[in-house]
Structure formats: structure tokens, C-alpha cells
Simulated scan of single mutants.
Amino acid sequence: MSERLKKLSEAGVSIWLDDLSRERIETGNLADLVKNSSVVGITSNPTIFAGALADGERYDEQVRRLAADGADVERTVFELTTTDVRDACDIMRPVWEATGGVDGRVSIEVTPDVAHDTEATVAQASELWAAVDRPNAYIKIPGTPEGLPAITETLAAGIDVNVTLIFGLDQYQGVMEAFVAGIEKARDNGHDISKLHSVASFFVSRVDTEIDKRLEAAGADKSLFGRAGVANARLAYKAFEEFFASDRWAALEAAGARRQRPLWASTGVKNPDYDDTMYVVRLVVDDTVNTMPEKTLEAVADHGEIAGDQVRPNYADAQATMDELAAAGIDYDDVIAVLIREGVEKFVKSWQELGETVRGSLEQAKA
């Protein structure tokens, strides 16, 4: 057991792996990460599945079977991904039971073609939930304007939700509002709200990538580079604390409801000049999740310096950083609008790549 990862867990951070493949499941690698690396959850996305399918032969038998049944690309993607998530849920089930449903989670995402269609998102979330058929699954729904009512309705149906593609503070406020509305509806629909869980995936490194690019173009002071992502996330946690201190939430909490935890996503460092553990060690605070690519997980295990709460004591510093960026000409609202739009575009591109990979596998199986 890595002492650094253990210390991170003890600080109240749930360590999730931002990767999933059939190879990890079948070789015992995933179970080993749970046992030895404090991993208590999994996130997946289309890029991850595309990589897994392209690199591994462990999907071939199921692809051949689906091809023989006449399955199209869409159905094949659905069957392959839900199978992996179901099997990963089974591996993570003891963690889910030990933590009362807080961790031991495996996330699967709705398709991007429904990102701007509320009703279709709700329908697909329900379809994925039924297909995986495991209580420790999370259905990922983008925090787009159309996604917000879908988050509410999906929670209202008693389905656990991982809200993804959150970049900005106003956007995050809307996500928390949608979450609470969903819990209230779930209660009114007769669901046991003490068993409903949700996380809000707040993206970190992409904020630095976009703002650093703008700072460089403006010839800004180098001291501002690489500071926005962490500052933005720290202010998101401040917003989280303030939101869940309301009387409205207190009434739900008294009925057993659980807060929607912030999840730090996009925590792999994009700029090689930056500390490869910065989006983990600088965002240590209790009641959060940090989902990491394996490379980042290994870096934290090897040399991550875990020094207690790095968020609450730094609220003023985070705000000062954002003020400095504004003074340097950074238009925060425009940055967030661009990141949300590009996030959905990348989401679409990843699904297209996954579809092409599956199409090739089906054609090969039929040859």
C-alpha cells in the first residue's frame, strides 16, 4: 500500500481511477489497484473505451457474437461498454458496501448526440442504468444547459448521477441547483433519498490550458501561468460549502439526503513544465473525489506531498489569483463558454472515434 495514497485517502479524498478496460478487469489489475493503491472508484469516457478496444483482443469474442446477431455499431458500443462497467461494478461492490454507497462507483456516460436534448438524455440515462443493473453505477450527464433538467429528472427517478464537463462557477451553481431539485423530486416520488448519490465533476487542467494560451498571446507575466485551474477549483469548493449550508438543504439532509460531492476531473498535467501532481496535492480537502489517469496516480504514489487541507485556507489567495487574471485581460466568462463548447465537441469526437473502432472490429468479425 502506497503511504502517500493512503495519506491522501485519510485526508478525505476518494481516489478514483480515470481509466477502464476489459484487460484491467480480467487480469486482476483493477482489483490490485483497489487493494494496493487506495483506488475506490472508476470513471470512464469514450476516449478510454476507444483506447481499450483498439489495444486489446479481449473484446473480440463479444464482437464476433454481436456481429453474428446483426448488431449495428450503436448497439455494439452499448453492449461492450455496459458489459465492462457491469463487471467493474462487481469488482468495486465490496467498496460500495463498506462505504455505505459513497464510493465503489463506476461511471458510464450518455452519448454526445443527446447532450443538447433533455428528454433523450433522461431516456438514455434510464436505459444505461437498467442495462448495467448495478446499484454502484453512476450515469454521467454533461452539465450543459440542456443537461441540467436531465440531471434533475434522472435523480428524481432514483438514478445516481455523475455530472460531467463542469468548468465555471456559475455553471457549477446551476448544477447544484439541479441536484437539489432532483433530490426534492425523488423524495416526492417516494424514493429513499438517503440512498441517492451524486458527484459534480469539476474540470481543472483544461482551465489552465485555455487561460495559459491567452496569457501567452497577451505577453502576460509568467507568474500568472498555471494558477487558474487550482484557484478556480478552490473557489468551486467554497461555493459547495456555502450552497450546502442553506436551510433548503438542511431540510433534505434531515431526511437523510447526502451532499453532492465535488469531483476533481482532468487532473493529469497537460504542461510538462508543471509539477505532475499539482492537481492532486493542491486540491486536498475532505469530502471530495479526485479521479486520476494511472500516470498521475503513480506520480502521487511516488512523490506526491500530501500536507492536509490545501483548499479552505486558500480561498482568499484563489480569489486574488482570479482578480489578477481579470486585470491581465482574461475574460473568465468567455473562457468558460469556450471550454464548455470544446468539451462537448471533444466528447462528440471521442464517440466518433469509438464508433469507427467498433465499426472496424465488426467488419473484421464478419470477414
Results as ranks from 00 to 15, higher is better:
residue 87 D to V: 12
residue 28 G to K: 03
residue 74 E to W: 02
residue 35 K to P: 01
residue 107 S to N: 00
residue 98 A to G: 03
residue 32 D to L: 07
residue 98 A to Q: 09
residue 84 D to E: 13
residue 60 D to N: 14
residue 49 F to N: 00
residue 111 T to S: 15
residue 96 W to C: 00
residue 97 E to Q: 07
residue 86 R to I: 01
residue 83 T to N: 12
residue 74 E to H: 10
residue 30 L to W: 05
residue 111 T to K: 00
residue 53 L to S: 02
residue 94 P to G: 02
residue 61 E to K: 12
residue 63 V to R: 04
residue 65 R to I: 01
residue 84 D to Y: 12
residue 50 A to C: 02
residue 64 R to H: 13
residue 92 M to T: 01
residue 84 D to K: 08
residue 56 G to D: 15
residue 88 A to Y: 15
residue 25 I to L: 06
residue 63 V to P: 12
residue 112 P to G: 02
residue 92 M to C: 03
residue 115 A to D: 06
residue 47 T to L: 13
residue 59 Y to L: 02
residue 48 I to C: 07
residue 29 N to K: 13
residue 115 A to F: 09
residue 112 P to H: 04
residue 99 T to Q: 13
residue 94 P to V: 11
residue 30 L to E: 09
residue 104 G to L: 08
residue 60 D to V: 09
residue 107 S to V: 05
residue 109 E to R: 04
residue 35 K to Y: 10
residue 64 R to Y: 01
residue 110 V to I: 02
residue 108 I to D: 03
residue 101 G to I: 06
residue 47 T to A: 15
residue 111 T to H: 09
residue 44 S to L: 06
residue 71 A to T: 02
residue 35 K to T: 03
residue 29 N to A: 15
residue 45 N to P: 05
residue 67 A to R: 10
residue 112 P to R: 12
residue 48 I to W: 12
residue 38 S to D: 09
residue 83 T to W: 11
residue 40 V to Q: 03
residue 62 Q to S: 13
residue 96 W to I: 03
residue 77 V to S: 07
residue 47 T to M: 09
residue 82 T to S: 14
residue 48 I to G: 12
residue 57 E to T: 07
residue 114 V to A: 14
residue 104 G to H: 00
residue 106 V to I: 00
residue 67 A to V: 10
residue 55 D to M: 06
residue 92 M to V: 05
residue 105 R to S: 01
residue 92 M to K: 06
residue 98 A to P: 09
residue 88 A to R: 12
residue 98 A to W: 14
residue 84 D to I: 12
residue 90 D to W: 03
residue 49 F to W: 11
residue 113 D to F: 05
residue 29 N to P: 01
residue 107 S to F: 13
residue 77 V to G: 07
residue 111 T to N: 05
residue 32 D to M: 01
residue 69 D to F: 08
residue 57 E to W: 07
